[in-house]
Amino acid sequence: MIVAEKKPVEEIIDYVKDFKKLLIAGCNECVTVCEAGGKKEVGILASALRMYFLNEGKKVEIDEVTLERQCDHEYLEEIRDRIDKYDAVLSLACGVGVQFMAEKYFSTPVFPGVNTCFLGAAEERGVWSERCQACGQCILGETAGICPISRCAKRLLNGPCGGSTKGKCEINKDLDCAWQLIIDRLKELNRLDDYEKIMPIKDWSTERAGGPRKVVREDVRL
């Protein structure tokens, strides 16, 4: 999923302090699961902002809504009939949702309520960690199912570097060395010989380096 973190309330206040009618829009997908921008977080932020404005002596109307998704037209359309009532939208969706909202409602200011962090997994309750950088050319088949692009601090394709110590990364003792994990798993799969295959220089053009990306699937287009 896309993992996000709540922005500090102070930062959000700074964005919206001059508006009179606000819509706080949550998203029922990833940000709900990682507890940063779902219905519950919308409620908390709305309550906090209502109190803030009241305390400041400002009359501000704050409405709450949580959409099924903010990255799809059909769900974003659900607020079209009332969007003009608001001076601004505070979107608690990931960066994708915030932008899609801004594109769709071109004349309404839209502000982010979360920091979008990475594509990750819920390691345990309350702990999420990165697993993918969406490089557009998956190499997990060659690296025993562990991604060195997202999990090695130097994204080395032929690791580990000389800083790998007791299974941990040189930059942080709490961080697993991705190449240690790869080697452990290659061993488990009886494929340790594969370690000596040199991974060729990567084509990064399918990654951010190649400019904004797009997937077009003719077979599923209308």
Binding site: P8, E10, I44, A48, Y52, E56
Partner: peptide, 9 residues
């Protein structure tokens, strides 16, 4: 408590 501090309560 953090939120209450942030909003001046």
């Amino acid at each position: 408590q953090q939120i209450l501090d942030a909003i001046g309560i």
